[in-house]
């Protein structure tokens, strides 16, 4: 091959420079809003009102965090958030994998009909009001289980896990069956351990979904303080334009050097922190998970 084809021209350098600048711009646009909120959470509230903060706190303080982490409301909300995330993830993963196992068995007579029943729900949505009435009829309004039941098995996760299980050599299952193992045993001791990568993927998906939910609290438990989550506490703060006396903003900001703005910034950081912390693990798995999902069949 002639060398001329490989030589970089001036045009290439211009392109690469422009591309580099664009990518840096993207990184700044993505990260700066997060950084700016973190800066406000570490700055003295009253000082922040004097003039704007950009990249670094002017009057550094742990005060906002001390104030918030000392609050019973936030404590309880964090507890509910953690509880709903753990319960959803444990049961969601277990049940999704168990059902996916049966649907991955070629000989299973209801394989197609059950798959159809689940996939159909991805397209037909009854809507908010009928769903609300059903949940109320089941006694799930103002009940912790409203966080668990509706998210138990997602059809997309089901398809992803089933597809992965289909790729595992049939001979492993056959030999266990010849040894007289029950289906439960094959699932628990052979399939489930072999599916760890895809299980990890959907576990992270379910956990992120559960942690990030706020709409269910808003619809099914808006007044139940004992069921409020971190997301919902933050939601209440950002949709209250003028905090009146007696609201949590007024109580939290009263005697201290804390403003509603620094309070919101601090709760935002506390609420986003778990996601940011698991993110490095998360992103190792999700692209692989998506690739599995795209190989439908």
């Amino acid at each position: 091959m002639a060398k001329g084809f490989l030589k970089r021209t001036a045009g290439d350098y211009v392109f690469e420079t422009v591309n580099f600048v664009l990518m840096i711009f993207l990184l700044v646009v993505t990260l700066y809003p997060i950084l700016n909120t973190v800066v406000y959470s570490f700055n003295d509230g009253l000082d922040a009102m004097r003039s704007p903060l950009y990249l670094w706190p002017r009057v550094f303080t742990w005060g906002n965090y001390q104030k918030i982490l000392g609050q019973e409301t936030i404590y309880r909300a964090a507890f509910v958030s953690v509880a709903r995330t753990i319960v959803s993830t444990v049961f969601g993963v277990l049940f999704t994998a168990m059902l996916a196992y049966t649907l991955s068995r070629k000989e299973y007579m209801f394989r197609r009909s059950i798959t159809f029943i689940f996939v159909f729900t991805m397209y037909v949505n009854a809507g908010l009001i009928p769903t609300y009435f059903l949940m109320r009829g089941l006694g799930l309004v103002n009940n912790f289980m409203i966080y668990i039941w509706p998210l138990l098995i997602h059809p997309f996760h089901l398809i992803v896990v089933r597809t992965y299980m289909k790729s595992i050599p049939e001979s492993l299952v056959e030999s266990a069956r010849i040894d007289g193992s029950s289906e439960y045993r094959i699932f628990a001791q052979i399939m489930f351990p072999l599916c760890k990568p895809v299980i990890a993927t959907i576990a992270l998906f379910i956990a992120v979904w559960a942690w990030n939910s706020w709409y269910d609290t808003f619809i099914y438990a808006p007044g139940a303080q004992h069921l409020s989550t971190l997301q919902y506490e933050l939601k209440k703060l950002i949709t209250t334009a003028n905090p009146s006396a007696g609201s949590s903003v007024a109580i939290l900001t009263q005697p201290e050097r804390i403003t509603p703005r620094s309070l919101k910034a601090t709760i935002t950081v506390v609420t986003a922190l778990p996601i940011v912390l698991v993110y490095p693990f998360l992103q190792r798995y999700f692209v692989a998970g998506l690739n599995v999902g795209s190989v439908k069949g």
């Binding site: 990030n212 706020w214 950002i238 935002t268 996601i275």
Partner: peptide, 8 residues
């Protein structure tokens, strides 16, 4: 979450 995004 959208709540975080709107707060930012």
């Amino acid at each position: 979450s959208w709540v975080i995004v709107v707060s930012l």
